[in-house]
Simulated scan of single mutants.
Amino acid sequence: MNYLRKPLIMIFSVFILLGLIIISCDVSGDSTSNDTYGSLQIITPVEWNPDIVSLQIIGEGPSGRNFDLTFPFSPSPIYISNIITGPWTIFVFALNADADQVLAGQQSILIEQGMTKEISINLSPLEGTGTLVIEFTWPVGAISNPVVSAFLSPYLEDDIFGVPVELLPFEYSEVEGMVVYRYEGVHEAGYYLLETQIRDDSGTPWSKSDALIITAGNEVPVTIDLETGAVNIQIILDGLDPLEVTLTSDSDSPLPLGEEMTVTSTVTGGTPPYTYRWYLNGEHLEAETGDSVVVGSTLSAGRYRLTLIASDGDVLGSEGLVIDIMP
């Protein structure tokens, strides 16, 4: 097979073994003597795209611990040691000579003391097309006359997005007492802003904005699950999200009417400086461009969803939280 002429149609595998300490790369953070450690051994296939010159390895682990390392590509194994035990998500990106990410993959693992584990991560091209699947679900009868919509905007650079495209059609079905509105479509691989919304008889929108990545040859599922009662929307993005974004607030929810809270973000990964786009119930807060935002004092009673989309100019990350305002 011609790897030189067709560098973007192959699926590669990276094999990761835990438990071997060869090269010391401390990712333990503010560890104590009670912490225990494991390690990674990363083995690349013998046959490889000659355009790939390096591998970027990002790990996101327990208690906010993380690492971001780049290694020159080589058939020899790559070892990373001093990794705190616990659940980790490992992201692997293959970079070309211009440091562009051309292949990507991820896998969740549990590092355990004294054990060696092996997992395989498939790296898929970031060029080509992938399938986006969106499902809105809720119990039958929970919402009267619902109207669902979704828009996808391609990410261009910094905090700039292209023209949003409405995703149609949504097919309706009922499965085991649950309403399901389902969209499935093929899109160019890349980063996107996904905006989803549901309206009922009252006209009240439940909206959410998130960063999303579509990789070539893969299916990216997005599930929007509405529960009865408070009607909370949870969007689960199984696509890659290389920037790690966390949000913290100085007040608890629910918030008394007329009071305010400050929400502060922490962004790791990528290459600073970052740009920030805040959304409240899907509406872009254009005046808010910093790493924190103050909300609440002008809001009426109800449920709100605050979302931050951060960028370093090349990749995106997003996080959100629900804010309830008491009557």
Score class of each variant (00 low, 15 high):
I16Y: 02
I22T: 03
V179L: 08
V163L: 14
R65P: 04
V133R: 13
E286W: 07
S108E: 15
T264A: 08
I198D: 01
P205C: 13
N232R: 07
T264M: 05
L306A: 04
N34Y: 12
E286V: 14
L123I: 14
P242L: 10
A301E: 13
D252C: 00
D158R: 10
E195T: 03
P154R: 13
I83G: 06
S253M: 04
I111P: 00
V231F: 08
L168D: 15
V46Q: 11
I78E: 05
D324K: 07
L167E: 10
L212R: 02
M115C: 00
S311M: 02
L103K: 05
L316N: 03
N2K: 08
E171W: 04
G229I: 05
S153V: 13
A97F: 06
S13C: 12
Y37N: 11
Y155H: 12
E195P: 00
I224S: 02
F91L: 15
G86M: 08
A230D: 07
I109K: 00
V222M: 13
V140M: 10
A301C: 06
E176W: 04
S207F: 04
S149Y: 09
I309E: 02
D252F: 00
I111V: 12
V293E: 01
S202I: 04
P327V: 09
T223Y: 12
I325D: 10
G258S: 01
T36M: 15
S207T: 06
T289Q: 07
P242E: 09
P45M: 09
I43S: 12
E283R: 13
I58R: 11
G269C: 13
E244K: 11
I21T: 00
F136I: 01
E47F: 13
V222D: 07
V295H: 00
P254F: 01
G313S: 04
N2W: 05
V14H: 07
I160L: 12
P7I: 09
E244S: 14
N281V: 11
K208S: 03
G19H: 00
D26P: 04
V133Q: 14
V315M: 15
N218K: 15
I52L: 09
D30Q: 10
D201M: 06
E166R: 15
I43K: 13
I9S: 12
D225H: 02
F73C: 07
N2C: 08
S249A: 13
A189T: 14
T215W: 01
S31H: 05
P256L: 03
T262G: 00
D250Y: 04
P87F: 02
N145L: 06
T268D: 01
Q107K: 09
K208A: 04
